[in-house]
Each structure stands twice: as structure tokens, then as C-alpha cells.
Amino acid sequence: MQRATLDLWVGIFVVAGIAAILFLALRVGNMGSFDSASTYTVKASFDNIGGLKARAPIKSAGVVVGRVSEIGFDSTMYEASVSLKLDTRYKFPKDSSASIMTSGLLGEQYIALEAGGEEKMLEEGDALKLTQGAVVLENLIGQFLFNKSEEAPKATEPK
């Protein structure tokens, strides 16, 4: 008799634990959005990826369509080679372009995918030809200062 109620409690306990893990997986975490099964991978090379991390989102028109699966360095071209894992539900033309953007001023970096005009679609293993690397803030500031200093002497040049 007593053993039966005890079993019941342990059962409730285990079910609650599984429910908690499911809650963490589906409601809190991003499992179920996309994983292994329904994706295809394309490659893209960038001259500079800035602070891009593996698992960063890939967005097209602001919608997340995939994730960065791998980042490597191509030592023949001296470029970063990035693998993009895209959801098979979303097809893109072969001449689509990828650029690395920043969400907000200091936010995380992501890859923006812009559709091209070709009729053939990207397939597993294809490479994106048109890419634009990350805008590095230091370079921007450097450039800005350089321009300023070029302007400055002109302004104060005595007649």
C-alpha cells in the first residue's frame, strides 16, 4: 500500500523533471527552430569577419533563415571561410550576396543574405561569390581621423 503512493510520488517527480527540461529546451532554448535534419550548407569567404561567432544568426529581410555553423581560415587566400547552415524551407538564387552586419551599435554580429536575380538556386556545398566583410569600428575611426587631418591644414592655410 505504502509502496504504491511512494511510486506515485517518484513518478510525479520524474515527469516534472522531464517537463522542466522540455520547457528549457523548447520555450527557453532554441531547439526546434532548426537543427541537423532540414538544412543545407553553403560556403562564403570574407576578407574580415570582425566579431562574428559560430552559431550567429543568418538573416534575410530581418528573418532568421539559418546559422553560422563553422568559421575557419583559408591560408591560401588569407581569408575567413564561413559555413552557413540554411533552412531548406528557404531557397536563394545562386548570385545572392552575404554581408556581415551588426545589430544595433554594440550588438551581436550576424550575416545578412540578400537575394540575387539568377534563376538557379543555391545547393548544398555551393559558394557565395559576393560577400562583404564586417565594418571594423577602429578602421572607420582611423579613416575619419585621417580625412580630418587632411582637411585641417587646408582650412588653416594662410593666404
Binding site: 527540461i21 528549457l24 529546451a25 520555450r27 527557453v28 532554448g29 532554441n30 531547439m31 527552430s33 552559431r55 544568426p57 532568421v64
Partner: peptide, 18 residues
């Protein structure tokens, strides 16, 4: 919820916690 879901990864965060 959506920011949470975007940032929390099941394998990296939840499973490692477990």
C-alpha cells in the same frame, strides 16, 4: 521570450547545465 530563445542554445547552455 524571443530574445531568450535567440540567445539560449539547447546544447551549449541547457545540456551543459544538466
Amino acid at each position: 521570450w524571443s530574445q531568450m530563445q535567440a540567445a539560449v542554445d539547447f546544447r551549449e547552455d541547457v545540456l551543459n547545465g544538466v
